[in-house]
């Protein structure tokens, strides 16, 4: 098991302004021009866990921060500061299954379009390899 990562552990904080209890990404695996992949292991004591189930707001926050970490990484590469991103809109969100504590979430972000300071992207999240949610989102930076 030798998976390449770009940022993980304490280092992820260089890409995201969020801190515990609402830091919802622990790894940035890869990032190119239009696609980035980030991950999170859901701990029992995660703020958004209820009775061992990782709930919808946690999942949506994880997706938003996956995109934010990816955008932050690209900004760092180009020598800029990491921007603070806000969710502008969640669209076409579909939940297949709620993840459980202990699951490894992996989210693939695909940038669809960027206009002014708004980035539109699509996202797919898997939990231990099974697709649990898809959506589109707009991040305002």
């Amino acid at each position: 098991m030798n998976v390449q990562t770009l940022f993980e552990g304490e280092n992820i904080k260089k890409l995201l302004p969020q801190r515990n209890p609402i830091l919802m990404v622990d790894t940035l695996y890869s990032a190119d021009d239009v696609e980035g992949v980030a991950g999170l292991t859901v701990q029992d004591d995660n703020f958004f866990c209820e009775d061992g189930i990782f709930t919808e707001p946690g999942l949506i926050e994880h997706i938003a921060q996956s995109a934010s970490a990816f955008v932050g990484y690209k900004a760092l590469q180009s020598g800029a500061d990491t921007p603070v991103g806000y969710i502008g809109e969640v669209k076409k969100f579909r939940l297949m299954k709620l993840p459980e504590a202990g699951n490894r979430l992996v989210t693939r972000i695909h940038i669809m379009s960027e206009v002014m300071n708004i980035t539109l992207f699509s996202a797919e999240t898997t939990a231990d390899g099974q697709v649990v949610a898809t959506c589109q989102m707009k991040l305002s930076v």
Binding site: E56, G88, E89, V90, K91, F93, L95, L98, C135
Partner: peptide, 14 residues
């Protein structure tokens, strides 16, 4: 209730 789908959720102000 479980949030099964969101057609849209817009955030107009911080």
């Amino acid at each position: 209730l479980r949030i099964d789908s969101l057609q849209s959720c817009r955030f107009m102000a911080v």
